[in-house]
Design a protein around this nucleic acid. Structure first.
Lengths: 109, 109
DNA sequence: TATATCTATCGTATTATTGCAATAAGAAAA
DNA sequence: TTTTCTTATTGCAATAATACGATAGATATA
């Protein structure tokens, strides 16, 4: 998306945006929902569940891994993807904090 | 970003992704934080706060308005942007629900 | 060793996003 | 009416994201 001027924003603002970006695709939401609900975390199962090509799923998994939400565990010949509890809690805290805020009264309300 | 295959995902998955996408830029995070904390909601003030050109800020505001998070109130010659409480609560509920989930035990944990 | 299985990466086409200057649009005030 | 103030829109260039076929890599099995 063009060049986001990340350097003019705070680290925290950039981190929030990055975490949100990781969630900003229905396929990645589906992946996370699957890992939250189902016992299976094998890449191949995710490929079967998602109506996308294997290469595309692998790419989405990579993005979630890059941001830290997932980590992969090689279990030959498979790879298991799991939610990283630490980052998951970080995201929970960050979004929780934002949505906890009361909207300041202003000219509109 | 290429063509997201939205039609193969559920409405809810797409809605979550769309809301996340609205938060997926530090400038939009900054806008929301400003509206949450400061009394001012005038477009011009946001332009002063953000280190971006007026046209760029206007564009980010438009995106937040499109998703429903903000609504604009014309107050000639100014425009006040305010958080839409309904959509804000929707987003809070959606992200709250996701992050409430316990991670299902699988081969990794 | 040869084959089969599973996942990652590469290459590429297409579309989306970011950013800004310039300009248009709208309303109030002079 | 003309000017001024504020915000939206347009047009453009540059870069990022999505998707998938093809292929490489790594490991287990025959």
């Amino acid at each position: 998306m063009g060049v986001t001027k990340t350097q003019v924003f705070t680290d925290r603002q950039n981190r929030i945006a990055d975490l949100a970006k990781a969630l900003a695709h229905p396929a990645r939401i589906a992946i996370i929902q699957h890992l939250l609900k189902e016992k299976s975390c094998v890449c191949g199962d995710l490929v079967e569940v998602l109506p996308l090509a294997q290469a595309t799923v692998s790419q989405h998994l990579k993005e979630l891994k890059n941001i830290g939400i997932l980590h992969g565990e090689i279990n030959p010949p498979r790879v298991c993807y799991c939610i990283n509890e630490t980052v998951w809690q970080e995201a929970k805290a960050i979004f929780g904090e934002i949505f906890e805020s009361e909207v300041a009264p202003n000219c509109c309300n």
